[in-house]
Simulated assay, not measured.
Amino acid sequence: MLQNALQNSVVQKIRKFFPAAAFFGGFTWDSITLGKLVQTTDLAILLLYYVASLVFLLLLAAEPGKFLNRAWNEKWQNRFTYAVQFCFGSLFSALVVCYFKSSGSLGAFFLVALLAVFLVANEFLQQSYAKFEFSLALFNLLGTMYLNFLIPHLVNGIGFFWFLVSVAMSFGICFGAFKLSRRSKRALIAPAVISGMLLIAYLANWIAPVPLVLKDQNACTGFSKDYTCYVDENDFLGGLSVYLGFSPTLSIAEGEGVTFVSAVFAPAKVETQLEHRWYHQNAKTGKYELLNTITSARMTTRGSREEGFRIYTTKKNVPEGKWKVETAAKGGSVIGSKTFYVQKISENAPKRVLWKIR
């Protein structure tokens, strides 16, 4: 009976998804627990995958009299498509992790989710990779996202200009592959559309500001220059609610200000100016309204402190209610955010405890 059940057509179809489901489940855990730093060797390995995928893509494009003066038999074509599948899967895997760690907004998470969908779908696209136009389109997407991660390590900076360079370089390489393949101009339509959509996504702050990673953040009061300050003590249930993502409270005395502290990791020589965006929730509409964007020269990342470069901003005359502060690249994408409730100190207010950012 068990054997008959396993041979059922529906079960057989479901079983095909087991490897991908197991892989994606393990990968999700790895994305959360992965190491803190990206080494030069990691960048070199990803570059190897990128170059290898280009080589195999060109080999798949071979046609008699047009490229390499030969066509591959079905056996070799299958080998090349498996190679493309492996290289693409490795790149998607690394990019999902890198962009996930730098995402601090819904739009950025949407892009990570899209990359994750392609990562899972990659397990089933081996035959599709035999189509040059399809492979070229995905290669352009991977190239742009990889170069956008690689270039900041090389030029020691991030910003729209360098993202534009990433888009131009990736599309230029795709154009070169297209010229060598001598395929129809239709092969460039999808890469061109993808490049345009990625530029729009960047301008909309949907592209995570890689390689910046938020390490720690909190709202507190009584801030000292040794990066210590006071937060409300949480009992077990309160601490559990904060751990699950619910907003903590911060009790302040009359006339006392609120300080927001962040720690942002950046590679050793990458310098970029950061900012804090202070939002207050409108009690009537329930929407957050931007009140202040605070930045300064001292909020420029320096060094490669593993726990992150520490910045802080202080706001006085803070009314009660729900607040949100975003840590972001100046004028760019959000690296992380935190919501909290401000309340006046009362007899029932939680006890204050000393806190220090890592």
Results as ranks from 00 to 15, higher is better:
Arg302His: 14
Phe171Lys: 02
Ile294Met: 11
Ile151Tyr: 08
Ile207Glu: 03
Gly238Asp: 00
Phe160Met: 12
Val55Ala: 08
Phe27Arg: 10
Val97Ala: 14
Trp72Val: 00
Ala204Gly: 04
Ile357Cys: 04
His280Val: 12
Arg186Ile: 06
Leu147Gly: 04
Tyr341Pro: 06
Asn292Phe: 09
Ala208Ile: 07
Thr327Cys: 14
Phe246Leu: 09
Val112Pro: 05
Asn156Thr: 03
Ala83Tyr: 11
Gln126Trp: 11
Ser166Asn: 05
Pro211Thr: 04
Ala116Val: 04
Met197Lys: 04
Ser251Gly: 07
Ile32Tyr: 15
Ala94His: 08
Gln217Phe: 09
Phe67Ile: 13
Leu180Trp: 10
Val261Asp: 03
Gly308Phe: 08
Leu34Tyr: 15
Ser93Arg: 04
Leu34Ile: 10
Ala137Gln: 10
Ile252Asn: 01
Ala208Ser: 07
Leu290His: 04
Lys315Gly: 01
Ala61Met: 05
Tyr230Trp: 13
Gly89His: 00
Trp162Gly: 02
Gly157Ser: 11
Ile311Tyr: 01
Ser346Ala: 00
Gly157Val: 02
Asn292His: 14
Asn122Ile: 05
Ala116Met: 00
Asn122Lys: 07
Ile200Glu: 08
Phe118Trp: 07
Arg298Asn: 13
Leu237Trp: 05
Ala204Gln: 12
Arg15Gln: 11
Ser170Pro: 05
Pro248Asp: 07
Phe134Ile: 04
Val97Ser: 14
Ala201Gly: 01
Phe236Glu: 10
Ile207Val: 12
Arg305Ser: 09
Ser31Pro: 03
Asn348Pro: 02
Lys225Glu: 13
Thr300Tyr: 04
Glu306Thr: 12
Lys101Glu: 10
Cys87Ser: 03
Gly157Asp: 05
Leu48Asn: 10
Ser296Gln: 01
Leu199Arg: 02
Lys338Val: 15
Ala190His: 03
Thr314Ala: 00
Thr259Val: 12
Asn218His: 09
Gly332Glu: 05
Ile207Gly: 02
Val213Ala: 04
Phe178Gly: 03
Glu233Phe: 14
Gly336Thr: 07
Ala52Trp: 09
Lys101Val: 07
Phe265Pro: 00
Lys316Phe: 06
Ser93Tyr: 11
Gly286Trp: 09
Tyr129Gln: 06
Val120Pro: 00
Phe24His: 07
Gly239Phe: 06
Gln343Cys: 11
Val231His: 11
Ser251Thr: 14
Cys229Phe: 02
Thr272Ser: 08
